[in-house]
Design a protein around this nucleic acid. Sequence first.
DNA 1: TGATAAATTGAATGAATGTTCAATTAATTT
DNA 2: AAATTAATTGAACATTCATTCAATTTATCA
Lengths: 205, 205
Amino acid sequence: MGRKSLKEARKKEIIKVFYSLAKKNGLENTSIAKIAAKMEINPSLIIHYFQTREDLVYGLVDYILDKYKLIYKVSATHSKDSRKALLEIIGNIFSKKWNALFDDGLFYGCYAMTFHDAKVRDLYKKLLDSLRQMLIGHIEQCREDGVLDVDDVETVADNIFVLIDGAYFYLSLVTDKEEYEQRLAKYRQQALSILHLKELSEVAG
Amino acid sequence: MGRKSLKEARKKEIIKVFYSLAKKNGLENTSIAKIAAKMEINPSLIIHYFQTREDLVYGLVDYILDKYKLIYKVSATHSKDSRKALLEIIGNIFSKKWNALFDDGLFYGCYAMTFHDAKVRDLYKKLLDSLRQMLIGHIEQCREDGVLDVDDVETVADNIFVLIDGAYFYLSLVTDKEEYEQRLAKYRQQALSILHLKELSEVAG
DNA sequence: TGATAAATTGAATGAATGTTCAATTAATTT
DNA sequence: AAATTAATTGAACATTCATTCAATTTATCA
């Protein structure tokens, strides 16, 4: 008996507000008090759900990495066609959709924490490694289906990831919209060339 | 008359302590009070030299980016030989020297600030662009000297930078020393292959 | 030696921080 | 309606923060 627990839903609400405030003002400028003020609740309620600020931050990292994972999601329509699936992933990664879905500033902000927080480092490492495995799987599948001609799958996947990380590191500093899009297209092109894949209009849109 | 000004030297001392503390504990955990305590001086003295914490952070960013620049420095002995100069730069970038000279955690920590601080963003952008120009110059020189066969110098330089940034992004999460070194060697190899250069024992050591 | 200017201290400020605990409100079950 | 459990509040806490200002120490020059 007693009242129904809202714990998980409430925690998510809090983290979402944390995310939006940190996105706007930066991680270090977003305090528990400010989150509470924005939600018009008492700061102690946030502590009630997350015992410490540390735990709250871990929650945010989880949230961010979950979003990040979505970039690599394959839509149901392409799940049977390994070539289309791979093209969709590459397309998602090097598209403007990314920016709508995801905030690079927070991603790098939390990434910076990995250098001093073992837990955050583990979360990042595990996610990045799992994404690597996922991409390896896709490429492997393509090779088995005979639509891809690569010799060393792991190296190819690594090259793709280096390209992604390196591309966005500099891109995040490019404010000129046109230059940004040109570079993005170029990097996508390069990813496809690493895979020995040609972009098709049907998928590349 | 009056006392001789120690301003610049003192500012540098303060920033060095700031750097070492932030390297150990993270940027957000390093306050003016802690820097002062470490130096056994009064916090107000730090404010006396840097009017605000903001300015102190800008000083740190300058300091970090100056260090970063050193990676691209060419030693006097190679300054006349464009091929050796380029090989030295590539060697420096993908070497363990980097880690001794430079703290990646702080570099990324300050990088994360670029998303909310226009001044920091400009400092980073200007530095990265100048390094790009520098590398372009080296490659250009190599081509003129006939020791390099590349068609689009700018693209090649961009590829190198993408490789660097992408490589270190993931490398920073690799704790296993052996894997770290293997990857590093692989990425250096890849840089040389982008340049159509073969590693020589004399330089690569 | 005395004037001058910079270095440095020391005390104090108010604001913001994360966190505590007890008290209260609200929903759900018997 | 009474009991139970969770949600939420509100007040208080000690700490830390960046920053202020006046006072003092220290070096340098005439």
